[in-house]
Design a protein around this nucleic acid. Structure first.
Lengths: 126, 126
DNA sequence: CTAGCATGTGGAGTGGACTCCAGGTCAAGC
DNA sequence: GCTTGACCTGGAGTCCACTCCACATGCTAG
């Protein structure tokens, strides 16, 4: 699969895909004799996974550590799990906070609803 | 209240407080004759609010717009409400995504739990 | 009144995560 | 063989949200 096809499928730019590979966010991608990247379905799965985690705010550095461990084989299973568990905890904390802030925002909006209504009545009467 | 006291109360650095004021993330803070910032309780409330929203990822630019409108008085109520509503929608979307990613992460961890156990049995037997 | 610490300002620097660019290959159609 | 468009690499640039710095001034304790 060419980089352009992967871009389309995953909704990322070629620059981003090359960047991901360069910093180790995904394992190295195979090449044709000409040196052109030839993505496999497995590569696409990695990209999808990384995009998913990044979309939730997991740091590149943590994911890089994860991918590096992955490349060392089964002996790294516990270490990889540890990373996931730790990231999960961070994520849960942020989720909790977002929930809380959303609540506050809703309260504030309700308040505005009120005040806007009052303000409009005042101006209609005028 | 001095900037140092506000720092302690709000858990931010003085640099950050000055930065917030400089870019308009909070309304201008009053000064003593000597030119030193003298925060009121209202100022602290603003800082708390901004910190809260920032912690949920609302962009500085959106909050700056909000604060700027606030300073224009009641006529800006509807515009301010519009910003809040829009930001709330974005936040809800991100919340939804975090929830989803958390679920995937949990599934992945459960999978690791399994595979780690297998791996350990293999190594204990050895 | 002076030492010394808290604050002030304007501006430069940082870290994270891309994003863009120049200058050079590769490959498919004519 | 040649043109043309996709791809390559290494490195520089961008954006965001702070964070740090240097140097100047304010205030308080002795």
């Amino acid at each position: 699969m060419t980089i352009a096809e992967v871009c389309k499928r995953c909704g990322v730019t070629a620059d981003t895909l090359r960047y991901y590979e360069r910093v180790g966010l995904i394992p190295p991608v195979g090449r044709t004799r000409g040196g052109i990247r030839d993505y496999t379905e497995t590569d696409v799965n990695w990209i999808t996974f990384i995009r998913c985690m990044r979309s939730a705010g997991l740091q590149v550095s943590a994911l890089v550590r994860y991918v590096a461990l992955f490349r060392k084989g089964d002996a790294s299973l516990p270490a990889r799990k540890a990373i996931l568990v730790q990231q999960r905890a961070l994520l849960a904390k942020r989720l909790e906070n977002l929930r809380d802030v959303l609540g506050r925002l809703d309260a504030k909006i309700a308040n505005y609803e009120e005040r806007c209504a009052v303000w409009e009545r005042k101006h209609l009467r005028k």
